[in-house]
Design a protein around this nucleic acid. Structure first.
Length: 295
DNA sequence: CCTCATTCCTGCGGGC
DNA sequence: TGCCCGCAGGAATGAG
């Protein structure tokens, strides 16, 4: 279960589930009207909210793609809509008659009788923008690495890059330029499986240890996507982010003071990078000595 | 280039 | 009862 019953933060598995749902419902549809209800939702679109709407009206959605936690929708105009859900974003398909959500930020109406697309985001960490000539891979997200489930992801390149990093392994796992799709929750879960404390120096990992860690990251992401796919028929389930944000089978995240499922030791919570990290004090001992002693 | 702290935002819950 | 504060956290940004 998500920690303390809070809504789940979308990580790669959730974004992939949204991508699949969107693909079913928006490909081939022509955009007839775009309303930006909160300018912050399109703050990354430097030409402004009015331009955002103008360049989209009349275009037809050709595809729905994903890189890490970013989505983009190539259009027949050659542009693409880029989206990130941030902490609390949802992309919903709703009948036009459905009442506006409290945190509705952008509405797309189509030139047909089908449901409208709504971007809803309470905390507005997420957002939408339009990329010119961005059908293949928009320049705005070209710095995002492939995720470990991408067929073109290179294990050897990742392992080499990870072991060159002069930082802690959890920080490296969260770096979307090294590999994408891992957030705080799945980083903790993968580290627990690998029996590694997140504060271990990345350049202290052996090649095989780094490869094992990558394998656990891949397993965690893959299992979550598979689980999301099980409740995946209905429009609402996928795209509405209600049931679509499947319960995660979490071993450490949010489980402070509860027994480790491997050894029974109470899970600890530590503050790291201004956020919480959860780990098992017995399975994942802290590295000895200060990081500054490395060298 | 590399690393890392800061910043954005809102709702919730605990403490007093 | 109500106010205040901490917390949740992805990723752009700029400092060093």
């Amino acid at each position: 279960m998500p920690a303390a019953g809070r809504p789940a933060v979308p990580e790669l598995p959730e974004v992939e589930t949204v991508r699949q749902g969107l693909a079913q419902w928006v490909i081939g549809r022509r955009i007839a009207e775009v309303r930006v209800l909160h300018p912050r939702a399109v703050r990354r679109h430097s030409a402004g909210a009015a331009n955002f709407a103008d360049v989209l009206v009349g275009t037809t959605v050709r595809d729905v793609r994903r890189r890490g936690k970013y989505l983009w929708l190539p259009l027949d105009s050659g542009d693409a809509v880029i989206g990130h859900l941030g902490m609390s974003g949802q992309l919903l398909l709703q009948p036009a008659a459905a009442p506006d959500e409290t945190h509705l930020r952008v509405r797309f109406r189509f030139a047909d009788d089908g449901p409208e697309l709504r971007f809803v985001d309470q905390r507005t960490f997420g957002g939408l923008s339009v990329s010119a000539e961005g059908a293949e891979l928009p320049a705005e997200i070209a710095h995002i690495a492939r995720d470990p489930l991408d067929p073109e992801f290179s294990d050897a390149t990742f392992v080499a890059a990870l072991r060159r990093r002069r930082t802690e392994i959890k920080r490296a796992l969260l770096d979307q330029t090294l590999l994408s799709g891992v957030g705080n929750i799945y980083a903790d879960e993968a580290l627990w499986r690998a029996r590694l404390h997140g504060a271990r120096p990345a350049d202290g990992l052996t090649g095989p240890a780094a490869l094992r860690l990558l394998g656990h990251v891949r397993d965690v992401l893959g299992e979550a996507i598979k689980e999301g796919g099980t409740s995946f028929d209905a429009l609402y389930v996928n795209v509405n982010g209600e049931s679509g944000y499947f319960d995660r089978a979490l071993n450490v995240y949010g489980r402070v003071d509860q027994p480790c499922r491997r050894c029974g030791a109470p899970i600890r919570r530590e503050t790291f990078m201004n956020r919480s990290s959860f780990s098992c004090p017995r399975c994942q001992p802290r590295p000895r000595g200060p990081a500054s002693a490395r060298g």
